[in-house]
């Protein structure tokens, strides 16, 4: 089985990798690049634990082949903080206790950041629908939604 050579940018870093044609971007991140912050909860796009951005757009990395990443910019949970400085939404997740077990948290944070990159004035309903593709079984979503709303308020200086 011939491997495909892919050149991409991950969290701002030029990255090259070889992958099998059937391997997903999630497989590549976790198994080839050691970036295990992106989680697999279902492998079928139903849980959002593997959320990443591709050219700024939120996608499930389990629903994309590694080969499709050629020439695109990928953003993962490992790139949400800038060095030691947490992104405000990461801080708010801690402040609001918006995680219990933490397995869905990377996907929620990548998704929430993608929302906040588009708008700082989301309504509660918009937050809930934007995040509907990210399953959380621990929290009942209450504290997650509050954390995202509070981040938006802080970022818009309210």
């Amino acid at each position: 089985m011939s491997q495909i050579h892919v050149t991409t940018k991950i969290n701002g870093d030029e990255t090259e990798f070889l992958c099998g044609p059937e391997e997903t971007l999630l497989d590549v991140l976790r198994d080839h690049l050691g970036m295990t912050g992106t989680k697999e909860g279902c492998g079928t796009g139903d849980c959002g634990a593997c959320s990443v951005t591709v050219d700024g757009r939120l996608v499930c990395s389990c629903l994309m082949l590694g080969a499709e990443a050629e020439g695109h910019e990928i953003g993962t949970i490992e790139g949400v903080a800038k060095g030691d400085e947490l992104h405000p939404v990461q801080k708010k997740f801690l402040d609001h206790a918006a995680l219990q077990c933490g397995i869905c948290t990377p996907g929620f944070l990548v998704a929430a950041k993608a929302l906040l990159d588009r708008t700082l004035e989301p309504t509660e309903e918009e937050v809930r629908y934007w995040l509907a593709g990210n399953l959380c079984r621990c929290t009942g979503y209450d504290k997650i939604v509050r954390a995202v709303m509070d981040t938006a308020a802080e970022l818009r200086g309210a």
Binding site: T36, G37, A81, F93
Partner: peptide, 11 residues
Amino acid sequence: KVTGRARFGAD
């Protein structure tokens, strides 16, 4: 757990 550093079962 908010940075992806935590190691779960499959990690």
